[in-house]
Every structure is written in structure tokens, then in C-alpha cells.
Nucleic acid binder design. Structure first.
Lengths: 183, 183
DNA sequence: GTCTATAATTTGATAGAC
DNA sequence: GTCTATCAAATTATAGAC
């Protein structure tokens, strides 16, 4: 009953930090901004996350679990392969539209060589987990797009183009294209 | 003979700034870093580019012309469609391996909502030009991957995954996959 | 846990001499 | 064009009171 609520304040901080990062990258989040967003002082944020890489890693790990949780079981035998990949695409599309920002992994992946090591390691681990999920989802699927890395990186790129050109539909079209050529 | 060399110093500054941006994003470049990289003082950089958005826009525009120059004619009738797209892929792959950094458009596209307006406009214009080139290159090509935006965004995402997982080959594999399903 | 206060550094930017 | 000198603001981070 205590461990269950997982610390309310920490969650608020992580949610705020995630928003800032997803809009402008790791350098676009600051202790002051997060603090005033949450309604506390920056020193209080330092209490929970002493150094900035700590904050970054926690944001990535929380995001990773949230997303994989939402994706659910990749190998439900009652679900055709196409539907599994469509589900992956919908998860990205939903978060793109709700938050009007690209995937956390995508922006931090793009900045990877400028990140503190601990954070970049967490981002790599996130991608590894996404690849595992997608490989399971694909099972023995065939077709020109039937590759976990290809599907994932195409989705990442589609999000970048969607926000850059302000065409959120480009992501949906990409998902359709990827799914249709699976068999 | 004066206008031809286009100002040596300005070029050095832009090349340095491009390197910093491509490694860590727009906030990862600073007047001081660029200055010491080039061997001058930060105030001298301000002389050429008074405000940071000026620098950002100039970097993007130079990159855009450099890349489109390297790509050459998208509609040479002696060249099959597959070869045109393979050429596009090789251009990205070469710069990924040489500079060990992703495309400038990709990282700035990912950060787009955190950029100064002038810079984000320049990035959008860059993508528009790349889409134009690719549409011309595709002509009336058919196949599940025969779409300019799909190809471009898949390449962008492939670069992100390639640097994140430290697998530069992922980009080459993506190019192959995109090309093979064109007809 | 959160606050006030403060330190040390970095950043974008300007004034004025050469 | 480049320099020295300088600034105001922002940033990460810490010490200590409540």
C-alpha cells in the first residue's frame, strides 16, 4: 500500500521531464523548468534526482516500461501478424497525436552521441527491448518489410517526418504500407 | 575571383557548427566551442553570425545545397529507378560512416518543436527539397516502398537506429530492402 | 521532502580598441 | 575581421534550515 503508489511526486517529475525532452531533446530539459512545471523548487528535484543523467535514465526506463506495457503480448496466437504490427503502429500514432511529440527513443537516439553515457546506454537498452518485442510479433512473417529493425526504424523516421512537415498522417500511412506488405 | 572562394572563414565556422549539431543537436553547439574549434574567439563568430538562429539557418542551407549537389540529377533517363534510390542511400551511408553522425535534417527534424522558428522553417524547407528530388527519382515506379516520403523517412529512421545500436550496416540493409522492392 | 541561499560554470551577446 | 573585456541570464549542483 505504500510501495504501490510508487511516489506521486517522482512520477510528476518524470512526466514533466519526458515532455520537455520529447519536444527539444535532452538539453531542452532543465531542473528549473521541471520544478516550476511541477510546482516545486529546483533543489527539490535534485533531492529526487541528484544529477541530470539520473533524471534522464529514469525517464527512459519509465517510458520503456510504459510503452511495452501498452503493447502487451507480442505472440498471442489468436492475433494475425498484421494486426500485431498495426498495434505497434497505433501505439506510436496515438502518442504522437496526444503529446504532439515524437517518441522518446527517437529523439534521444538521434542525439545519442551527445548524451551522457548512462543515458545513452539506457536508450540502447530501450531499442533492444523494442526489437525483441517486434521480432516476437513478426514470428515467421514474410514480405519485403518483414524485419523488426526495418519496421522500427521506419516508424521512427516516419515520426520525424510527420512532425517536421506537420503531417501526422504520414505515420499512419507508413504503418499501413508496412502492414500491407506482410504475409 | 573574390566572390568565388565564398569566404573561407565562414565555411570553417559552418563546418564546425554542423559537426556539433549532428552529434548532439542544436543546443550542443555553442559559440565558444565553434570558435576554439576554428581557432578564433567567440566574438569573431558573432561577427559572422550575430544570433544563434542565424548560424543554425546557415548550417542547414549549406548542408541542403551540399547534399542536393552530391545527389545530382534525379531524372537521368539512362539510369534505372533502383539505381537512383540506391544512390540516395549511398549518399546517406557515406556521410554516416565518414562523419560518424546522422543526417543534419534528421536530428533537427527530431528536435523541431524546440528550435527557433527560423531554423525549424529551414529544416522543413530542406525536407521539402529532398521530397521533390525523391519524387522525381521515383518517376512512375511501383512497389510497396515506392513513395518518396516513405523512402526518406525510412532512411532517416535507419540512421537513428544505426547510431543507437552502433550498427552502421543497418542503413545499408535498409537501402537494399527499399531498392529491392521497387519495380 | 521542500525550502532559501548561494556557488561555479556556461551561454548568447555587446562595446570598443586595433 | 579579430581581439579583449565584460555582461546578464541560465544551468547544474550543494549546504543547511524547517
Amino acid at each position: 500500500m505504500e510501495k504501490n503508489q510508487k511516489n506521486e511526486r517522482v512520477t510528476e517529475i518524470l512526466e514533466s521531464a519526458e515532455r520537455f525532452i520529447r519536444r527539444g531533446g535532452f538539453n531542452a530539459v532543465s531542473y528549473r523548468d521541471v520544478a516550476s512545471d511541477v510546482g516545486i523548487k529546483s533543489s527539490s528535484v535534485h533531492y529526487h534526482f541528484p544529477h541530470k543523467p539520473d533524471l534522464g535514465v529514469a525517464v527512459v526506463e519509465r517510458y520503456s516500461e510504459k510503452l511495452l506495457d501498452a503493447l502487451g503480448d507480442p505472440s498471442d496466437p489468436n492475433e494475425p501478424v498484421q494486426e500485431r504490427i498495426a498495434r505497434l503502429g497505433r501505439a506510436y500514432a496515438a502518442s504522437l497525436k496526444e503529446d504532439k511529440a515524437i517518441c522518446l527513443g527517437c529523439i534521444l537516439g538521434a542525439e545519442i552521441s551527445g548524451l551522457p553515457q548512462e543515458v545513452s546506454d539506457a536508450v540502447s537498452a530501450f531499442f533492444d527491448r523494442m526489437i525483441d518485442w517486434t521480432e516476437l510479433a513478426l514470428a515467421g512473417a514474410k514480405g519485403p518489410t518483414a524485419d523488426a529493425r526495418f519496421i522500427l526504424s521506419s516508424l521512427q523516421g516516419a515520426m520525424v517526418l510527420a512532425v517536421t512537415l506537420k503531417k501526422p498522417n504520414h505515420l499512419d500511412q507508413t504503418v499501413r504500407r508496412l502492414v500491407q506488405s506482410l504475409s
